[in-house]
Design a binder for these strands. Structure first.
Lengths: 191, 191
DNA sequence: CACGTAAACATACACAATGTTCAGTATTAA
DNA sequence: TTAATACTGAACATTGTGTATGTTTACGTG
């Protein structure tokens, strides 16, 4: 099948506006944390009309998860390895590089939106991606369910570990943190 | 030393008002979760004047952590064992008894306020309560700091485990959950 | 380059919620 | 009974949201 949109041809004004809004959000998040940022702040900072914002996004959450807003790219790279194993060294490297923005998004001021999103991403990497061998069995076995719970708990612990590390201004090396994280996952998920 | 306030003698009107507000908050939290509840909701439900609310509390957070608002008693009993070990059986029992309120407070709609408060309480129970043998040493050793991080991570995992369990309508017994929680703590904090 | 379209603009509005103030009306403790 | 004080109700200023309006500007295309 051919492209539905033969030539997307995005209007320069749209690109400019979206970039302005994204930049504004980013800088504001660094300053006051995601939760504290209002749409008003964003359009003031971006110097964009109120109606213009709502022409593109329904609210600040949509702006945040807009795609060009690298919420999880902040921790994982561009690769998006999906459900594979986690490269903790790379993860901590990324976190250290984007320390300011990561802290502002995941820390106290970040709000649960971003936090739970990142947690969900990590949990998905940890728990078996619902490989239904027999699609009939609708209900997961108790072991599977507990495994799922543990994946959630592990993800939560991992995120907390990263946040603690960031908040304390990275008192350990990337390697130390990666090692501890790997141990954590192995110990917790061994069931 | 004697009491600073020889006879507190709280005006019945004050008691009544505070109770009304607390009850209103509780029922509203169960209905829509803590975050979604507004001061307006509370005073409407309590049938109390706006100014009356602000005569007693600065905001809904103050009302929540008012003392008669058993945020953590919901999980731990009245004993307040402090930094001792955690009785997971009792914890899950309490959680099961107050399932509705616990879910409303800790779940998605709960907001991070309560969640992080409970996490902090648990983390404090897990990490050594800063027993300064030599008060001179201001900076904790690296091991101590990592231990603190792990306590935070473990607390986060434990809370997540409880929330998952509650959200899934308690598909495991209290004993199963307690066992898994104990294993989790031992594995994670063994350093 | 010209032209029509779509984006951005400014402004105003309705609404909801916060937090403060104040005079008047109770209820209470003494 | 009385003096203190807690509550009421209403108004107000403030902030933020989201929508709707008509106008101007910049863009892509032909």
């Amino acid at each position: 099948m051919k492209k539905k949109t033969p030539e997307p041809v995005i209007d320069r004004r749209v690109q400019r506006t979206k970039a302005l809004l994204a930049d504004a959000l980013m800088s504001l998040v660094i300053e006051k944390g995601y939760e504290a940022v209002t749409v008003q702040d964003i359009i003031d900072r971006a110097n964009v009309g109120r109606s213009t914002f709502y022409a593109h996004f329904e609210n600040k959450e949509q702006l945040l998860f807009n795609g060009r807003m690298h919420v999880e790219t902040m921790l994982f790279g561009e690769e998006d390895s999906g459900t594979g194993t986690i490269d903790f060294l790379a993860l901590y490297r990324h976190a250290a590089e984007n320390a300011k923005i990561a802290k502002a998004m995941l820390g106290k001021q970040g709000g649960d939106l971003i936090l739970s999103h990142v947690q969900a991403v990590i949990a998905r990497k940890l728990s078996p991606p619902v490989k239904k061998t027999s699609p009939k069995k609708k209900q997961a076995s108790k072991e599977e369910q507990m495994r799922h719970f543990l994946a959630e708990a592990t993800a939560s612990a991992l995120v907390r570990l990263i946040v603690c590390w960031l908040d304390a201004n990275m008192p350990f090396t990337i390697e130390e943190m990666a090692k501890e994280s790997e141990r954590l996952v192995l110990d917790l998920m061994k069931l």
